[in-house]
Design a protein around this nucleic acid. Structure first.
Lengths: 193, 193
DNA sequence: CTGAAATTTCAACGAATTTTGAAACAAGTG
DNA sequence: CACTTGTTTCAAAATTCGTTGAAATTTCAG
């Protein structure tokens, strides 16, 4: 059972390719902190020329109806799929949004950046604590070192924020003088301690 | 029990700050696909002015000796900590590597890029299958559409590879004309399908 | 060498997450 | 309306992942 050498009917090739892509996309998004099933569902929709129903997706992905329903809900919340109105049909049909970079940007902004922000705040709190202690005990040298390190982390997370933010902005066609700042932003941070 | 307002002994502030940073770093790296305990261990080492033993780390992180040992092993494999030779001591002492960007770069290169590479190969295989089928059935229009979409994913993953690669290269002081390519690399991809 | 201390390994446990399957619910048709 | 078909919900089952605790192994001071 070879893959590329046997020329079957087109639908077979389609099914084969869909399986492969679906599986791959599953791994990809799983690594990114999503459920693999979401990636697989999305990929099936993405590679289908026609809108699909939950039932069809369940068949394609070998998931239960329940799992598909939940996955689709989440995909909908992320704005990755839409319902397609099909007149005179009881079941609901869905398609995948195909502007992938747009999708990636939104996820970065709404998830990664929030996380870094949150971390920055906490690092800042740590720095504050250490700063207060340092002021209360100006003689303590090791305390000062610790403070320095903590500040390093704070700077790091702030720089990371800017970097990721820019990473997300790239691909946005509507932006001016962003390029060129990437490296210079970073250089200042690289020698902490 | 307020945090910033009470001025205790410096060691208290240090402990408090370390706990906070350690916890935060744990969440951060967990989100990145590592065990949270690794981040916590690393943070403790990073915020310590002196090298620490496994036992001390177990106390600081409230992990078992076993968990610490495993975490340290993994941290060692990633080159994030080193053993510090302390003469006349049976136990082993460790310190954290402090060049964080260097660390991030290596992880991106050895983990993220590998993953994307792997995915690219699989997308490519899917494209091959569809291409063969298209050649065998040049009349089939929907097949051609599917092929197109699959190619979109392939291009995407290749672009993503380059982008992430560059993201990792940034912070490397020794590099020339990389800046400026970031956006242009991407623009070509944004309109697939 | 020897033995105590430190470290590593690993099976079992537990927590967290995902999926299932079935029941409740909704929607649309005849 | 009542009935069929499709969809959602949710508790239980399955799976995955990290941690524990103790046994096995290594290390080195005496």
């Amino acid at each position: 059972m070879t893959t590329t050498s046997s020329f079957g009917k087109p639908s077979e090739a389609q099914a084969q390719a869909m399986m492969l892509v679906s599986e791959t996309m599953g791994e990809l998004v799983e690594f990114w902190g999503f459920k693999a099933s979401m990636g697989r569902i999305w990929a099936c929709l993405y590679l289908s020329t026609t809108p699909l129903t939950a039932q069809q997706l369940a068949d394609l992905t070998s998931l239960s109806a329940g799992a598909v329903s939940m996955g689709m809900h989440e995909l909908g919340q992320w704005g990755l799929i839409s319902r397609v109105p099909v007149p005179g049909e009881r079941k609901r049909y869905y398609t995948a949004h195909t502007d992938i970079w747009e999708i990636i940007r939104r996820i970065i902004r709404e998830r990664e950046l929030r996380l870094i922000e949150r971390s920055s705040k906490r690092f800042e709190r740590a720095v504050d604590i250490l700063q207060a202690a340092t002021e209360a005990h100006p003689d303590n040298a090791s305390l000062r070192i610790v403070l320095n390190r903590a500040q390093g982390l704070l700077t790091l997370s702030k720089t990371g924020y800017k970097l990721v933010e820019r990473f997300a902005d790239i691909g946005d066609f509507s932006l001016g003088p962003i390029r060129g700042t990437l490296k210079s932003t970073l250089v200042k941070t690289a020698q902490n301690d």
